[in-house]
Amino acid sequence: MKINEYLRVKTVEEAYHQMIQDPIDSYLIAGGAWTKLTIKEVQTLIDLQDVVKNHIEIKGHMVHLGAMTSLEQIAHSTLLDHHALVILKRAASIVMAPGVRNLATIGGSVMGKYAFSDIIPALLALHAILVFHKRGNVWLQDFLQEPKKDPDILLEVLLPIVPGVGYFHAMKKTALDFSIISVAIVKTNQRNTMVIGSRPGIANRCLQAEQLLNEADIIDEPFLEEVANKACSEVDFGTNVRASGEYRKQIAKVYVLRGLKEVYGL
C-alpha cells in the first residue's frame, strides 16, 4: 500500500470528519494485517489506535469487544469461556498464526466483510450487534446484507450472553490457509442459529434449517440429517482456486451434521 498521509487521530470525531471530507481517498486502518499486501494508493490513512477501545469487558448481559481488540486477545480471553461464546475464541484462534492474530482486529474483520472470514460466521451465530459512531447499534446480519452506506466508524461489537452451547469448525488445507468452508452453530433455549461461511461467498445464516430445528419436537439423528440437508440446500456454494462448489456443499453437510450432533449431544 502506498500511503501519502498518515493521520493518527486524537478523537473519533476527528477521524469521522476526515472521512466525510474526503470519502474517496480516506481509509481507516484497524490492525493493519492487510496493509502491506494491499496494492493500492491511499491519500490519507487514519489510525484509530488511540481512540477506539482494544479490550473486552462484560457489562450486564453483554460482552463488549472494543473494535481494536486483536484476534490474539480474543483467542486467549477468559471472558469468552461462557456458553456458546467459546466459538468466537475458537474462530479467532485458528486465523493464521500469532503474528497475524496480533495485528488483526475484530473491527477490521467485520468491516472488511471478508468472504473468507472465520470471525464473521462465529459472530453471526452469536447474534452480534455492531456499535457505530454515528448510526449507533446495527445487527451484524443486517450490516452484511445492506448496500454500502455513508462512512461511519465501528466502535464496539456486542455479544449477548445467553445460556447455550456452540460449535465452530473451519476446514482448511493447512493451518495458514483460508477456510474452504466454515460452520458455526449456536443452540440456546430460545433458538438455534446456523451459519455457513467461506462458501466462498460471505457467511450466510441457514434460516429455513434454523426454523426446522426451532419447531421440532423430537430430535434424532435422521432429523438432524434432514436439517443439515436443508441448511446446505438453502445457501449457495461456489468454486474458486481452493475448492469446487460441489465439494464445499458435500463437506458443509458433513460439518453441519457433526455440529448439530455435538450441540444436541447425539
Binding site: 499486501l37 498464526a97 493451518a175 495458514l176 482456486v241
Partner: peptide, 16 residues
C-alpha cells in the same frame, strides 16, 4: 500460475 504467493501456495506448517 495461480499460486504465486504463500497465501495460495501451502507448504506444511508446524500444525501439520
Amino acid at each position: 500460475l495461480h499460486q504465486n504467493d504463500f497465501l495460495s501456495y501451502h507448504i506444511p506448517t508446524r500444525k501439520e
